[in-house]
């Protein structure tokens, strides 16, 4: 686990590797360096002991993801992941992210982009390229004339995927209405046509 405990120069926590590091660093050229006063962990300009440490996270904080959330996520993400490993991976990812809560962000504005301090350029809303229908269609597996072809209708995925799904989702879970939308969908450059 990569939970962090802040601290300066744990001089007592030097591992074998770190102490040999001090030796090597001291042997390196460059006499006349000043030692930081009163800080036995600092030799020269580079700290000789790690300035922070990983701490094992207590298992108490581990969050379980509910079946409802898993259902919802699967539909949002449009990938099936509900095997044991997938759920484990997600829970670990959440646990990892929870370390953020150790940081005090009171009064801090969220940062979207490092270029926030300047105006970003926008092109004139004019067509500058085109006539590339054929080229673009070449990468599609199924097409009719100038259209990309999608399979008919829209049904929620888990209904057809029950056999792939794991112990977490029993048959009783899958009682959401099946929705059939369109008999066939042709997608043309982002627009859906009946």
């Amino acid at each position: 686990m990569w939970v962090l405990r802040l601290g300066r120069c744990f001089s007592g926590a030097a591992s074998g590797g770190a102490s040999s590091g001090s030796r090597l660093a001291r042997a390196a050229p460059g006499g006349g360096r000043q030692e930081a006063a009163g800080d036995p962990g600092c030799k020269g300009r580079v700290f000789q002991n790690p300035t922070w440490q990983h701490v094992e996270q207590t298992p108490l904080s581990q969050k379980k993801v509910t079946v409802e959330v898993l259902d919802h996520l699967e539909r949002l993400a449009l990938v099936d992941f509900r095997n044991w490993e997938g759920v484990q991976q997600l829970e670990k990812a959440i646990q990892f992210a929870d370390q953020l809560h150790a940081v005090n962000t009171e009064g801090v504005e969220p940062m979207d982009s490092v270029l926030e301090d300047r105006c970003l350029y926008l092109r004139e809303d004019n067509i500058t390229e085109g006539n590339c229908t054929e080229e673009l269609l070449q990468n599609a597996k199924e097409k009719v004339e100038e259209y990309f072809v999608a399979p008919p209708g829209t049904t929620f995925l888990y209904i057809t995927h029950l056999d792939l799904i794991n112990p977490l989702c029993g048959l009783g879970k899958c009682n959401l209405p099946q929705v059939n939308l369109l008999p066939c969908i042709l997608v043309n450059c982002g627009r859906i046509l009946k």
Partner: peptide, 18 residues
Amino acid sequence: HTPGLSSETLALWAKAAD
């Protein structure tokens, strides 16, 4: 200077600073 930093890399880093 994090946990897991190898002694050799640390030594080189210090040498570079010097």
